[in-house]
Design a protein around this nucleic acid. Structure first.
Lengths: 266, 266
DNA sequence: GAGTGGTCTAGACCACATT
DNA sequence: ATGTGGTCTAGACCACTCA
């Protein structure tokens, strides 16, 4: 009956409990590997490191060489409201301005426009055949220099060739307005949210710490006659965002709705 | 300039590439630790294990002792549609029936009802003072025996005392109907979605593999006069779910909307 | 019984930030 | 210069499943 819990598990469990009850506060310093080795009997260095690795992968602590291990501080989360789709379609390029008004931090973005072969994910959602190309706007968006999401939009090339959509910079009136001028007014959208660990590429672009999962948010927008127009793939780091949706029975009540009222902490 | 990449990184990078390009298909067997040790020169066992640990934490592989390491197979994702809030409020307890009709798998759930002191998360959203208690329905929901989410609802105790809400079983007409009968008709909701790694408790209850992140979905429902009624906290494992929302400009078009049409794979 | 991964030991040398 | 974590070596014993 007695499957004595491994030493590295006890290390992780004890430290996790001390983090949970506040004995080790956010930003606080953990014992060094040498100290832990002593605390938990004469175990070897890799054993305590194995325990610490668990906590790193849970996103609870970070290692800062050569200062030691520290309890991770959650940066304030970004308010990411779902736009009211009943009054106006979502405007992707004015996102940063929306956020700027909610928060003291300065938004900026890097935009890169190109023509590519669509991935199967994009192809399937736009209903494309094999030899059709798509135009893509790849954005990395920052708040006070810190990257806070990746946002790549795709539309069939035939649709936007020679339009403002292809301008490699901010489109002040919003890309959806451009699409409306091209006869593709957005009337609805389907959002899919996948939860997963980031790829190494995403870790690099978003400077993610270990143990930070992401949401992959795929939004497909449609015209009134169910014609898919644009696919947007949004990579949202879990440690600096909360995704907020509002649902309401009667759209006319919208003004009275509670916005996201809980500030920066859950 | 040449910071030679560590051996364990090369192990992880190579294997990750082979998984990405399909050389190692889902369910396929990786080389054993001994084989990898040989492939990457005379390195020691812990070195290759360190590389494999990276892939495990990325959710790409699993270790099955004593068969070896295998590429993780994504189980078909559960369709989790956003109910149409404009026609009827969400009915939490008939969730399982909704899903049963979309999918061949058999749903079941365990429900436990109790009275507790609210956590700060719940207290804040329900606007409670310090000495108010809440009633809670904790559910673990299964599909073909596999747990696929945790769903805990909270309402002020004063509201539902002696009502059907407290029945520790399925409430066929839905808990929101019960609340409506108590004078609290749900007219809107605010959804927050946090992305994070699971707690050990969640790992246990959902039998999560390493490297599986979760979404914590907090839904707060309101009456027409902005009175919070119920908080539901839903823990959604990332490896067996996709969260789907639909947005639409004109509610009357709803019937024509595209549902989630992409089956079990992204 | 053979082979797998799980746990652990007892060292080594290194890069790096702070003192 | 010191002490930290990062990487690596070269073993050990164990539990478990499969042939």
């Amino acid at each position: 009956m007695k499957p004595t819990t491994p030493i590295y598990q006890r290390v992780a469990d004890d430290l996790r409990a001390r983090i949970a009850d506040g004995t080790l506060p956010p930003g606080g310093k953990l014992p060094t590997e040498a100290e832990l080795r002593e605390t938990y009997g004469t175990s070897s260095r890799s054993t305590v490191r194995q325990g610490l690795a668990l906590l790193i992968n849970e996103g609870l602590i970070v290692a800062r060489r050569p200062q030691g291990y520290f309890v991770r501080e959650m940066r304030p989360k970004v308010y990411r409201p779902q736009q009211d789709f009943r009054r106006k379609p979502p405007e992707v390029d004015i996102y940063t301005h929306l956020i700027a008004s909610e928060d003291g931090r300065k938004p900026s973005q890097e935009i890169e426009v190109s023509i590519v072969q669509p991935s199967t994910v994009v192809k399937k959602r736009l209903g494309l055949t094999d030899n059709q190309f798509v135009a893509t706007r790849r954005r990395t968006r920052f708040l006070d220099r810190e990257a806070y999401d990746l946002n790549d939009s795709y539309v069939p090339l035939s649709l936007v060739q020679n339009s403002d959509w292809m301008i490699p910079g901010d489109v002040p009136r919003g890309t959806n307005t451009v699409l409306a001028e091209l006869g593709k007014e957005i009337m609805g959208a389907l959002d899919e949210i996948y939860i997963r660990m980031p790829t190494p590429e995403e870790v690099r672009r978003l400077q993610l710490g270990p143990g930070t999962p992401v949401a992959e948010h795929i939004a497909t927008t449609y015209t009134a006659d169910d014609d898919p127009v644009q696919v947007t793939i949004n990579i949202v780091p879990g440690d600096r965002n909360v995704i907020v949706y509002e649902r309401i029975k009667n759209p006319e009540d919208f003004e009275a709705r509670p916005r996201y009222p809980w500030g920066t902490e859950k």
